[in-house]
Design a protein around this nucleic acid. Structure first.
Lengths: 239, 239
DNA sequence: AAAAACACTTGCGTTAGATCAACGTCCTTC
DNA sequence: GAAGGACGTTGATCTAACGCAAGTGTTTTT
């Protein structure tokens, strides 16, 4: 379930954004205290309110980070995959995880204990800079998420999500939804039923969804929808 | 408008969370490159999409950080006051501010250039640890904000806001709303009209709002409202 | 291959919150 | 102290999104 990193793996892990900018020595130092953990779909990686004693990097699979209210409602705060760091914020608060982490597919995560991170930073302060960059990126992501929730309709958020998945700058494209629709809905702050209805609305903007495949007939058309003012979207005759 | 920090001020600034944990030397080093800036109510401190070349600490007054969409809609991402840091995320991305900052009252802010921060961290890595802690706190704040938006009704978010302002653990308390209601509404992701109606609903939970004063007759009663499931609140006969 | 479990969609009623517009109230400023 | 403006409330109407329940389709199990 949990194994240490053998040195032959270290260079392969150098592609991970957080580790990329580090010197080989710093990378080795940081990974010396890390463990690789295999988790099955649905398995918890860390629990909200538990003492935050480690942060993580996804090596394989998908992980969701969410907050559950005492009443059972849950809010997805982020969904992470290959190469992405999560729960690094907790590593510096010296307190508890503000959210929970769960594998949504069978996954492999790198687990780096907070205590070891502190030692590693003392040994090489450049590690701190890499961590700050990673923290800042997540901060930015959350800012965008809040903006989306406040100023975009459901359909607009779905369109934005699809556009982020697409690599084409213009024209048509086909893409695979990376995880199931219930999670997409959660990630976008809506219910599965609402997501389903949002997909319906997007048909009039040239989006066809079949199973876990989405076909966008014109990326630019979809982009105009996202740019539109909320009011305009609401009063438009589309959908 | 913009002055450097005289050394007699340095110790007074030691109360600021970010600077508190630093050694006197580190604090002096960091402040050597800082400038104090007076800004009037309504004045912009930094602009979304501008090159991020500094981060800030509020010395006096209130500052709002918000994102504006191309269509004019705006989403408030945070409201900061005395001792709080803002825009530190931008300091490590080497790119642009993801949001704008504006003084909502006449204010004084400490402006620390990114270039100087980098130099200071090189001189004393402990500064990096302090920054990370501050970044983590903001990360946590944003996570809470997202949870609130997704799982709480307007009235619940207002109740939460009031409870955060109150210092009393139980019983009744009177508190002063720190800034105007339009901004409170924005901060909580709603329109001023909705905030007004939310205050109405809170009357049945013992909250009386007159001008910029709020009286909570029983803190615990209000807390039960926040803890409640969204569904329960929606179907309750209250309000 | 049938059954059971799961994932998603659709229909229908309801509602929290937005919009638009009118009105009241405080707070300046001359 | 009248006039003006910013700020806040209230009312009427509308809609995006929700909850529930029933339906369809797809995948897994046996």
């Amino acid at each position: 379930m949990s194994t240490t990193i053998v040195s032959s793996e270290v260079e392969k892990l150098a592609e991970i954004p957080l580790l990329k900018r580090l010197s080989t020595e710093a990378r080795e130092q940081l990974l010396r205290g890390a463990t690789k953990k295999s988790v099955s779909r649905g398995e918890m990686i860390f629990f909200q309110d538990d003492k935050a004693d480690a942060f993580f990097i996804v090596l394989e699979g998908w992980v969701k980070v969410f907050r559950a209210t005492s009443s059972g409602d849950e809010a997805v705060v982020g969904v992470f995959t290959r190469g992405q760091t999560f729960a690094e914020g907790a590593a510096f608060t010296n307190s508890n995880y503000p959210a929970s982490g769960e594998a949504v597919t069978d996954s492999v995560v790198l687990c780096i204990p907070v205590a070891h991170l502190a030692k590693s930073i003392a040994a090489d302060p450049n590690i701190a800079l890499a961590m700050m960059s990673s923290l800042s990126m997540h901060l930015h992501q959350l800012v965008l998420q809040i903006e989306g929730l406040k100023t975009h309709t459901g359909a607009q958020r779905v369109a934005e999500f699809l556009l982020n998945l697409s690599t084409e700058p213009a024209g048509s494209c086909t893409l695979v939804l990376p995880y199931d629709k219930a999670l997409i809905a959660g990630r976008l702050g809506m219910k599965p039923e609402s997501l389903s209805r949002a997909f319906q609305k997007l048909k009039s903007y040239g989006v066809e969804v079949k199973q876990n495949r989405a076909i966008i007939s014109n990326v630019q058309v979809l982009r105009t929808l996202v740019e539109q003012e909320r009011t305009v979207v609401m009063h438009s005759s589309h959908g």
